[in-house]
């Protein structure tokens, strides 16, 4: 049975979007959200967090989302946590590339915050539906 989603980790370099997503997920979805502003921070602190789901921006300076995902996969504490990309790069080629990398889903920017919770829940359910 799919466990209830409660704790989300969000990595995004844009402070405005970071704040909006945090508020939307907390206020509208009732999740507890931890945010990081770069892939480096995520790799450093994610192992200590007890996140059930990671939301990851793709275009970030330095270490991008794709690189961050491959690092997270190598860390034992984070290797099994499902990752959803939230990105403006949503060309069909790019989406299939993210999914091939093992992403649980892709949410396209710009998104409606009212729908964000719905999309996160949908991806979460689908991911556990497939893996169980």
């Amino acid at each position: 049975m799919t466990q209830k989603l409660q704790r989300i980790l969000y990595i995004e370099d844009d402070p405005d979007i970071r704040e909006i997503v945090r508020v939307a997920l907390e206020a509208l979805g009732g999740y507890s959200v931890t945010t990081f502003d770069s892939g480096y921070e995520a790799i450093k602190y994610a192992p200590q967090s007890d996140a059930q789901l990671i939301l990851l921006d793709v275009m970030m300076p330095g270490m991008d989302g794709v690189m961050t995902l491959s690092h997270l996969r190598k860390i034992p504490q984070t290797s099994d946590i499902p990752v959803i990309f939230i990105t403006a790069k949503v060309h069909p080629d790019e989406i299939s590339h993210y999914l091939n990398l093992g992403a649980a889903g892709v949410i396209a920017k710009p998104f409606d915050p009212m729908e964000l919770v719905f999309m996160v829940e949908k991806n979460w359910t689908q991911y556990y539906g497939q893996t169980s």
Partner: peptide, 21 residues
Amino acid sequence: HELRTPLTAIRGALGLLKSGV
């Protein structure tokens, strides 16, 4: 693509205002 980032913030902020949070 560059327009999508600020639009994400605008759409998000407006959505949150409308949602009543």
